[in-house]
Design a binder for these strands. Structure first.
Length: 1061
RNA sequence: GGGCGAUUAGCUCAGUUGGUUAGAGCGUUUGGUUUACACCCAAAAGGUCGGCGGUUCGAGCCCGUCAUCGCCCACCA
């Protein structure tokens, strides 16, 4: 930190700065927060990452955005707390540990038992929590690490118990037999949200069910179609629509309507569908010769007969099981689908379950939890589903009951966790009644109490909650919060009352279906003998992970205790998260927050874009396309990572990142492909040496050098950080030079500059104030990309390319030096603070150096703002704060904003660019000084004349004349600009042909503009457009005509010149 | 089937309430080691704003429609 400024390296070294300042922040507890009545609170809770695995760039984005907001708020003077933590992620984490157990030790969880498995998951959790926290720290996240929480820790566990108990006591928790999505591999129920559908080629089997004692005019068989023949063993009815003809006609008319309105490309399919459906309605005489009984069964008359038979209470024989099951009528049987008859398997299909309930059918479960068939499957019991299916199909065929088999594309439900097919399975399950809870959460958003940004996500949130589907909260897992229910069999209510007399932390209910008591305990686990003479048993299951994460905003602050933290920080400020979990998590947080605390959990929700890979796919652990932010940091630095991500966070667009590997030995870029992205090591195609990736696990792979992930967006961001670094390096070097004290040394310069040397100062201060305003507004409304653009453009194009360049000559002038230095300090200091939330390390590194350089510096005075006050001295700056992280956020000095002056500066920039363009296009050697003159009005001349030294230093061009009387030198290049013509004297460097060509092109271009403007001004435009707009157009036209004239004059002159020569 | 988003330069993306000649980075071309920076500097070329229609004096922006792509939800015996 104390190295002399002239030893500042030319390149910013992120690794050193990161290490140094992370430690510094930590040691000084800058991010530790506690309730402070003198300040306003601002709190953010992290969306706790799953301990399943390490973070990827999606998390990096999420946490970068949070950190930007949090750091800004902290600088703005809020008592700011960002609570970190991780989520136990029940299913996912248990699954990953179980999978490894199986792979590495060939053991299942049943082999090692509940306690041993849970212990192993804890070990896993410790390992990954550490890794995750280190990743967050590596990114520079300014969390209060002393308050790190885990959804399964004691504080959270207590909150979960209280939440459950209160719901239970209010009878909002119930248990019922419900059809759940059963994962036969993990042997657990998974929620609808944890199911994905995969398109596979399956089969559609048409099976005959013999009619019992058919009358002569009746069919001998009912044909049903199924994709899952094995479930027939659980059939308890065959259904047909009560009025198939009417229903079919309705379908046909709907189809016709759709066909009429359908876009062209869908018409063919719809027409086909319509034809097929209509065929069912009419006797298809053309096919009556074939003996295909299937076609016959599709006819509507057939269905009508069956419907009649059903009302008569007739039965069919269930093949293989050989038992009669009723033929029933139910609207669920769609006459247009399948054969129009549908087998009803209430225990293994959600729709059939509903039918079964309606029709009071028996419910026969044929599955064991491990996915084999149970004793209800008769001779098929013990077989796996797959094997059973094969056997049953073979048996049916042998008995002549299989009509036909079709190939069919089906969407098969799979478990997101195990990737195995889901079986609908009847199971006992705990539910939370959602009715009122959901309504509260809807109202909270509808009435604007919680604001969702961007607003379009509101709809999804409200729609989802509006379904008010009860929330299944049990999971057949070992990793999680155990359900705090104990079953007591046989006791009387009196005995229970006696056992828990005087306890208000115990609540019980009678389960009339199973004839058992449910005893819920708010805090302590109940011993077996809690009810004398009876043995009570705790429920085996654990709670859904979302049940605990729903409490995150208040459980992390100590609820149910009324802690000072809860009273001070709650409701939290903003929740920044991903759209995927808007319903699963955000909605449930709102309802749980409202239920438990009576208050909303946060004021705002910001939904940020998703990180996609080069194929447009979201990053995920399972796909292997998740890139570890640490590997980006290793190559580009944390600041570059953060800046790049924030720069890409726009409102509508997901963030697509093309990343590739870089060979650590020869620097060759190895494209990341779907194949190599999951490999632990990759062989460089050029040098042939292997390097490791983030997936390296074996010791030998880990020994290899790592091939970093590179991407254009990160390079841009790294370059920006380096640009900032070098601008600061320039400032620091200029401060370090001995103060000039020999008077008279630069008197000439002083004279030249005196009149107007403040133009660029006033300009940069005006721009700085505007940028301060824009950045603050953007960040406060979560428009991160806008803020980054403002900062990037200002820092690079205005501060570096213009201000710093211009100030160079003043630094060489003793009489102006102090003022210039003070300006540099002021602008850089403000810029650093504006940038700090997004690039914390490089700004801290520079800021600390700047502070030291300012010791003893006494600057000139000028109108400043909040930080510097009217009488800025470097000493104040040094005293101010020990870290930029707690320095005050800049407040825009609105009085410094002067748009007229900014426009004047633009004239200077335009002129400078025109001269540089002439130089470049005429290949004027860089060292050759050229002369130029400008024909313009007097105010412009007055404005620009004092800038002469800058034309010299920035374009190596010497001004020879300004004003209306200026005439073009003979051999010159003329550039017509708005309101002025610049003549660059080229003498022997001139290429007359090229000049003429250029002017002709220019004239043609101007002619085009002029023509379009003239026609515009001759039309209705003049009458209908606002006066100001018309006036603007007129002025613009006049300017264009003026420019054209100038170009024409210059061209004529050149032509004459040629004839003379 | 329902909902949401996108389509702008070779690539990746900005583009505020409709208003002069549509911007940036990368890439390309030209010229540069100008004392902060080659992770740099100066400059150039490059676009019928997916198609069609409409509203308007005026449309990248508003409306309709078609096409293509992506995401979410629901359903599919």
């Amino acid at each position: 930190m104390n190295e002399p400024a002239n030893e500042i390296p030319k390149q910013y070294d992120p690794a050193t700065a990161q290490e140094k300042w992370a430690t510094f922040w930590d040691e000084n507890q800058l991010f530790h927060s506690q309730p402070n009545p003198n300040k306003k609170p601002f709190c953010v809770v992290i969306p706790p990452p799953n301990v399943t695995g390490a973070l990827h760039l999606g998390h990096a984005l999420n946490n970068t955005l949070q950190d930007i907001t949090v750091r800004m708020k902290r600088m703005q003077g809020f008592e700011t707390l960002w609570i970190p933590g991780v989520d136990h992620a029940g299913i996912a984490t248990q699954a990953v540990v179980e999978r490894r157990l199986l792979e590495e030790e060939k053991l299942t969880r049943h082999d090692i038992g509940r306690n041993a498995l849970v212990q192993r998951i804890w070990n896993w959790k410790e390992q990954y929590q550490t890794r995750i926290i280190n990743q967050l720290k590596g990114m520079g996240c300014s969390c209060d690490w002393t308050r790190t929480r885990f959804t399964l820790d004691e504080t959270c566990a207590k909150a979960v118990r209280y939440f459950f108990f209160n719901l239970f006591k209010q009878k909002l928790i119930y248990r019922g037999k419900r059809l759940v999505n059963w994962d036969t591999l993990l042997q657990t129920a998974v929620s609808d949200d944890e199911v994905f559908h995969e398109t596979i080629t399956g089969h559609f089997w048409y099976i005959k069910y013999p009619v019992i004692e058919p009358k002569p005019d009746e069919p001998k068989y009912v044909v049903v179609a199924t994709t899952r023949p094995e479930t027939m063993l659980g059939d308890t009815a065959v259904a047909v629509h009560p009025d198939p003809k009417t229903a079919l006609n309705k379908v046909i008319s709907d189809l016709k309507k759709r066909l009429a309105a359908a876009p062209e490309k869908e018409k063919y399919d719809l027409q086909k569908e319509l034809d097929e459906t209509e065929n069912r309605l009419h006797n298809s005489n053309n096919s009556n010769n074939s003996n295909n009984s299937l076609l016959e069964h599709l006819q509507i008359e057939h269905l009508q007969i069956l419907a009649r038979m059903a009302t008569e209470g007739r039965c069919v024989m269930l093949p293989l099981a050989n038992k009669p099951i009723p033929l029933i009528t139910d609207v669920w049987a769609k006459p247009e689908k399948g054969t129009g008859c549908v087998k009803i398997t209430p225990a293994h299909d959600p729709n059939d379950y509903e039918v079964g309930k309606r029709q009071k059918l028996p419910i026969i479960n044929i599955l064991n939890k491990n996915g084999t068939l149970n004793e209800n499957a008769g001779k098929y019991s013990g077989l796996t589903i797959k094997k059973a299916r094969e056997t049953i199909v073979a048996d049916l065929e042998e008995q002549g009951l299989l009509v036909s088999v079709e190939e069919r594309i089906i969407e098969l439900a799979h478990s997101d966790r195990s990737k195995t097919p889901i079986e609908p399975f009847l199971n006992d399950q705990w539910f939370v009644k959602m009715d009122q809870l959901a309504q509260n959460a809807i109202d909270t958003v509808k009435n604007g109490e919680v604001k969702i940004i961007p607003e379009r996500y509101k709809k999804g949130y409200i729609d989802w909650l509006s379904e008010k589907r009860d929330w299944p909260i049990g999971r057949q897992l070992w990793w999680g919060h155990r359900i705090p229910i104990w079953y007591c069999d046989g006791a009387t209510e009196k005995e229970i009352e006696k056992a828990f007399a005087g306890r208000n932390d115990i609540s019980w209910q009678w389960d009339s279906e199973n004839n058992v008591w449910w005893i819920c305990s708010q805090t302590e686990d109940l011993p077996e003998n809690a009810v004398p003479n009876y043995k009570i048993v705790q429920d085996d299951d654990v709670l859904d992970t979302w049940f605990s994460s729903a409490l995150w905003a208040h459980s992390t602050l100590g609820w149910p205790e009324q802690t000072p933290e809860l009273n001070y920080y709650y409701p939290t400020g903003v929740l920044i998260t991903n759209r995927d979990i808007l319903t699963l998590w955000v909605a449930r947080m709102v309802l749980a927050g409202k239920f438990n605390t009576g208050k909303k959990p946060f004021h705002e929700v910001f939904i940020h874009p998703k990180i996609l890979d080069k194929y447009g796919e979201g990053m995920s652990k399972s796909k292997g396309n998740g890139v570890d932010p640490i590997s980006v940091i290793a190559k580009f630095g944390a600041d570059a990572l953060r800046f790049a991500l924030a720069y890409l966070t726009t409102e509508n667009q997901d963030i697509r990142l093309t990343l590739d590997f870089e060979c650590p030995y020869c620097g060759t870029i190895v494209e990341q492909t779907k194949k190599n992205r999951t490999q632990p090591k990759i062989i460089c195609p050029k040098c042939g040496v292997s390097f490791r990736t983030q997936w390296a696990e074996t010791e030998s792979d880990k020994m290899l050098a790592e091939g970093p992930m590179i991407g254009e967006r990160f390079e841009v961001a790294r370059n920006f950080c380096n640009k900032l670094w070098n601008a600061a390096r320039f400032v620091l070097l200029s401060l370090q030079e001995p103060q000039l004290n020999e008077s008279g040394k630069h008197q000439n310069h002083t004279e030249v500059h005196t009149e107007n040397h403040f133009l660029e100062d006033r300009w940069i201060l005006s721009r700085l104030a505007t940028v301060t305003k824009n950045v603050t507004e953007s960040l406060e409304t979560y428009r991160y990309a806008d803020a980054m653009r403002f900062l990037y453009d200002f820092a690079w194009d205005e501060f570096c390319s213009f201000y710093v360049e211009m100030v160079k000559s003043r630094l060489a002038d003793e009489t102006q030096k102090t003022q210039a230095q003070a300006m540099l300090i002021f602008v850089l200091n403000t810029l650093l603070r504006l940038l700090h939330p997004v690039v914390p390390f490089v700004t801290e590194e520079i800021w600390q150096r700047l502070r030291l350089s300012c010791v003893g510096f006494t600057g000139g005075s000028f109108t400043g703002n909040d930080f510097i006050s009217n009488d800025f001295t470097g000493n104040d700056f040094v005293k101010f704060a020990k870290s930029i992280a707690i320095a005050p956020w800049p407040v825009a000095d609105e009085s410094a904003i002067n748009s007229e002056m900014e426009n004047q500066f633009k004239v200077f920039q335009e002129l400078l660019r025109a001269i540089r363009d002439v130089r470049a296009s005429r290949n004027v050697p860089p060292k050759t000084e050229i002369a130029f003159s400008v024909r313009c009005d007097t105010p412009t001349a007055t404005l620009l004349k004092p800038m002469e030294p800058y034309f010299l230093s920035m374009a190596k061009a010497k001004a020879t004349g300004w004003g209306e009387a200026v005439k073009a030198p003979v051999l010159s290049s003329t550039v017509p600009l708005t309101g002025m013509d610049v003549y660059v004297d080229l003498s022997d460097l001139i290429d007359i042909a090229a000049e003429k060509a250029k002017l002709e092109k220019e004239i043609a271009k101007l002619d085009g503009f002029i023509k379009s403007k003239e026609s515009k001004l001759n039309g209705d435009f003049v009458n209908k457009a606002p006066v100001t707009v018309v006036e603007k157009e007129r002025q613009s036209l006049a300017e264009l005509q003026e420019q054209r004239q100038s170009a024409l004059d210059a061209l004529t002159k050149l032509k004459n010149l040629k004839t003379v020569q």
